[in-house]
Each structure stands twice: as structure tokens, then as C-alpha cells.
Design a protein around this nucleic acid. Structure first.
Lengths: 113, 113
DNA sequence: TCCATATTTCAATATTAGTTGAAATATTAA
DNA sequence: TTAATATTTCAACTAATATTGAAATATGGA
């Protein structure tokens, strides 16, 4: 993962509304949540939400799928893991240094890393 | 760690210059680096660097100490770990879900978590 | 003390980000 | 086809951020 992608991801999360949205999606897991319900449960207006979802999608932290007239958003766990890896990479210049970060979700018999 | 602190930390890192500074400090480890050398090795002007260091310090991602007329900055690993924890917290709403994140640095016989 | 070095502060400017409400688009149900 | 629902787009406005260069502050050495 390159510098620019990491900055994009961090910038996407560095905002109260988007952080709240992202955490909501992390908690709900891979099944995701439709835009309207995100708007409702976070108190963010639909128009503003759409703006923020674009940021989160663009940074690859969430993905979306269509289901009839709903747009279902869900957290993309692998992007987050790459970001975490980047931030702790090459820690302490070769001196004894351990850095691990794993995130595993098991839902509906399916493992999403 | 509360919402606002996490947003502050993420905002601090969501900027090319500051991300470069932070990674430089992570790589060098707890011994840190003086402002002038950071400026030199990242190509950020002293005045601009000072602005960014204030952001990073304010968000508690780096700390500073004085050594004669130098100001030595170093990464604060525990803040980063708290941020990582926050982002992966309560993953997948109670379903089987594992989230671990550790960062350990061993330098000069001293362990910095 | 006086000068050089290290860093920070400040003002000016340019750019980017977030919110609002109204209008547009798309899908489904009657 | 018409109406209702779900979501996105747009324009206008406001606020926050980043960069630059000059000046200020602080420390240490000659």
C-alpha cells in the first residue's frame, strides 16, 4: 500500500461523521447496512451522508452493493489492515521490534480477513 | 480513548508531510530525532515543520524533549495502539470476531509498548 | 557580551472540506 | 403510468488547513 492510499484512508476516517459511519459498519460486519439506515442511526442527513460515503468508498474503506432500490454499504476490513500495517512498518530501525495486527471476522461460515 | 482523540490522531496523520514525519519517527524509535534533522530528511521547511509538529504533538502521537538547543521529537507508540484498538473495536456485532493489535519496541534494554 | 544556530511565531494567501436545502435520478409498488 | 421511496447531485456558503517568508525567541560557543 502506497503513501497516497494511506493518506486517503486516514483522511476518510479523520472526521467525526465518517468515523461514526465507519464504526457502525465495522460493528454490523460484512452484511452491511443500507444508506437510509446509516443516516437514521447516525443522525447524518441523507445528502451529507452521500457525500461522506463517497469519501469512504473512494478510499476503499467501504464497499457498496445494490439491492433493489437500496444501496448497502459495508466495511472493507482488508484496507484497514493494510493501513495498520503501513503505520507500524519498519518500526525502530531494525532493532528488536514486534508489530502484529490481525483482524478476522467470521460470519455465516465465511471468513473475511 | 474517545471519539474526539481518535479523530485528532487520524487527522494528524492524514497529511503527506505529517505521515512522512511520523513514519520517520517510528523507524528511528524511542531515541527520537531533532527538528532540524527531521526537516532535512523530509525536505519540509523549518517553519512548516514546526506547524506540523505542533499538530502531531497536540494529537499525542509524538512527544518532545529539549536537549540543549535542540528539540528532540519521538513517536508515542501507545497512542497509535489505542487508535488501532478503537478502529477495530466491537467488530462484527458479537459474532466470532478476533481483533488483536500489538506493537512492541525493545531498545536499549527498555521496552516501550 | 556578541554572534551563530535551532526552532517557533506570525501575517498573508490559496486551497480544500463540510453543511444545507432544493432538484435530479432510479427503482419499486399500486 | 403515476406516485412514493431511496439515494445522489448541485450550488452557495462558511470554516478550516497548508505554505511561504520574515521576524521573534532561546540557547550555546567564541
Amino acid at each position: 500500500m502506497d503513501n497516497t492510499s494511506v493518506v486517503k484512508a486516514l483522511a476518510a476516517l479523520a472526521q467525526e461523521s465518517r468515523l461514526a459511519i465507519y464504526r457502525t459498519l465495522v460493528e454490523v460486519g460484512p452484511s452491511g447496512m443500507p444508506a437510509g439506515k446509516i443516516s437514521e442511526s447516525t443522525g447524518i442527513s441523507p445528502s451529507s451522508l452521500s457525500f461522506h460515503m463517497k469519501e469512504l468508498t473512494y478510499s476503499n474503506l467501504v464497499t457498496s452493493r445494490h439491492e433493489s432500490r437500496f444501496v448497502i454499504y459495508s466495511a472493507n476490513f482488508s484496507t484497514m489492515n493494510e493501513v495498520l500495517g503501513f503505520l507500524t512498518e519498519n518500526c525502530c530501525g531494525g532493532n528488536p521490534c514486534v508489530s502484529t495486527s490481525t483482524q478476522t471476522c467470521l460470519i455465516n461460515e465465511e471468513q473475511v480477513s
